[in-house]
Amino acid sequence: MISLVVPTLGRPSLATLLDALAGQLAELPEAELLLVDDRDDDTGELAVPGTLAAYTKVLTGRGAGPAAARNLGWRAARGEWVVFLDDDVLPAPDWARRLRADLATTGRVGGVQGLVTVPLPATRRPTDWERGTAGLADGKWITADMAYRRTALAAVGGFDERFPRAYREDTELAHRVRRAGWLLVRGQRRVTHPVRPESRWISLRTQRGNADDALLRRLYGRTWRTDLELPPGRRPRHVAVVTAGAVALAGLALRGLDRPGGRRRALGVVAGLAGLGWAAGTAEFARVRVAPGPRTVEEVTTMLVTSALIPPLAIGHWVRGWWRTRAVPAGALVTADRPGAGG
């Protein structure tokens, strides 16, 4: 048996996903579908197509995020393989057939990732948000479409529920599964992951993920990015920009309080040089975000404003995450004896 687990917040995209799955039931005669309703309010029951009703079980989550919702799903699953799908993907017409072929594997293969396609505009350059979403196509072991042996999930205790967002929790699980001796491979099935509409200020909200990075740093030490096969980030540059800005502001404040003289002039010079450093760093960040985009007035304005705000936000969230996880010792990982949540 194959178990499909779909955590959902009841977004309209869920209906599109369920309709696509309903049309492929013939390829998965013994499958079960577990919908984990992770809404934190009482907004009614999820609508399930009649053709899926006999295969579907709806579980009530706690509104604690995707890691907790997926744990609830796979622990209720009966299949040898558990396939995690996001509620905003669209499986290809041959997805179910290729899924069966992907999972016809033996040995120590504990997980098989599906291929993800992110459609981008054909008539203009993609926005910053669209380019960020397109990165899912190259992501490793992302749960937009990721299948795990249930025994592999049980061996490592599932997802770490200390990761409250859809950010890093799937990569961290994959790292623990590989450390337990399982192999992870890419399959041939494919899903499409559309770019959902978002506020032009979405890049500010996504900086909360820096708190999750702080937890990874606590758990895995300095080599956490290398160990988890994550690309290098911009945090060192953000630190430099924020430091320059802080020195500039402090220098101006002290200069305003000081008496005329050599020290006041020196403070002015320090503040000026630090201000130039802040401006140069912010301009470089804005340039690399504006250059590949559509360069409309709205997009350029958004990039300029957010490029000034992201560095202090990113560092603030990192410090907040570091403080909140200060009691977590290195190596305090989820295990089969300590499943799921951890403080």
Rank of each mutant, 00 (worst) to 15 (best):
R320L: 10
V300T: 13
W224V: 11
G50H: 11
E80Y: 10
V305H: 03
G111D: 03
L216M: 13
D213T: 02
E161A: 12
G256P: 05
G342Q: 15
G157S: 14
L309S: 00
A96P: 09
R235C: 00
A274Q: 12
G268H: 08
H193Q: 12
D145I: 10
D138M: 01
T60W: 01
T60S: 13
A77G: 11
L25W: 02
P194S: 10
G245L: 03
A53D: 14
A152D: 12
R165K: 11
G135E: 12
T296Y: 01
A152T: 12
R200W: 12
A174L: 04
I315L: 15
D258G: 11
R326T: 09
G293Y: 01
A76H: 15
T325V: 06
T282E: 10
E80M: 03
G139N: 03
P49F: 00
L276Q: 09
I142Y: 02
L333V: 14
V5N: 07
W141G: 07
R295D: 02
E45T: 09
P91K: 09
T60E: 08
L59P: 13
T171G: 15
A92K: 11
R218H: 15
W278F: 15
D41E: 15
G268W: 08
G251I: 03
A211F: 00
A96G: 11
L46G: 08
E30Y: 07
G343H: 05
G321S: 09
R190M: 13
D258F: 12
P164Q: 08
A47W: 00
L153M: 11
N71M: 14
E169R: 11
L273D: 02
V239K: 01
R295Y: 04
L85Y: 03
R78L: 09
E229F: 02
A92M: 10
G316P: 01
R200I: 08
L204I: 06
A104V: 04
G10E: 00
P93K: 08
V89C: 11
G268Y: 07
D170N: 08
R11N: 01
T192P: 05
D212K: 03
P312V: 01
V6H: 06
N210S: 00
R179N: 10
T282G: 07
D37R: 09
R295L: 05
I315A: 02
P194V: 06
A240P: 00
E172A: 15
A274K: 09
W129I: 01
A134K: 08
D337F: 11
R190V: 14
P339F: 10
L183P: 00
T151P: 04
Q188P: 00
P194I: 05
V288W: 08
A67T: 11
K140H: 09
R225P: 05
A286I: 06
G135L: 04
G23Y: 02
T306R: 01
G293E: 01
